[in-house]
Amino acid sequence: MSNLDSKLPELMRQATEDLEPESVDLVERSVAQGTRLRQRRSVLAGTAAGVAVLATVGVVVGTVQHFDGRADGGPMVAAPPTISTPAASTTPTVQTPPPSKAGGPTLATLKSLVQGPGRTLSLPETWGGAQDGFFGAGLVVDDGKGGSRIQVLLERHQGPASCAGEPGCKKRPDGSTIRSSSLIPEYSDDRQQEFGIVYNYVEITRKDGRQISATSYNGVSEKGTKHTRAVPILTVAQLTKLADDQAWKFPAKVTK
């Protein structure tokens, strides 16, 4: 058994030979998830939960220029936020995300737009901030028929808005663009049967580049919990109205 290390590469190669994803739409789902990622709560995107991960992992400084050599301080991909990158440092350091400074107003606006008679609001949360270049907020709205998580994310892109040939994107008369989807299953495997989460989604980019995306789920969270109602509380049309509201305050920083 002493030569396990020399045999391991071949063992791994043989074990994975011919393995292919069973989900034929894996790439499509990845693209769909990626395009709405900033709108969705991600504990690895510089949130408080991300800090908890850092504290647990105790990640040591690494230097991977191609990977996280970011100069603009914008939102980071899942893995990179866990590593800070002073090139010559040998001292373990942890880069903590900047505190959220604008989640409050975003959440307050969200609350004001979704509240109504017979509705209760719970589980509020915010993420992002001015330094991140995006403001995120979410909460659960219950109209007596079950809780529905609603999330928004506000960013500012370089204008003017453009669909750039993206399928499913439409240009509106006011120069803004809109992308939307309804009753999208959260999972592509048998967990969809188990949890039954679906969501409605709208992303509007105003003519000047201000972008807001809004999602409503038919459960209190996007993953890991069973759905609480048949359909999300807000339809695509209602999400569109919410996203078009002029009360939203967008970050000043342009996201590249």
Binding site: S30, V31, T35, R38, H66, F67, A78, A79, P80
Partner: peptide, 29 residues
């Protein structure tokens, strides 16, 4: 894989070496 690719798409325009980035992102994720 889905999470990794989705996160890559989010910053796609800033990735110079996608293959290396994907591998590292996958493992870190």
């Amino acid at each position: 894989v889905q999470d990794t690719l989705a996160n890559m798409l989010k910053v796609w325009g800033r990735i110079d070496t996608p293959e290396a980035y994907a591998r590292t992102a996958l493992v870190r994720t």
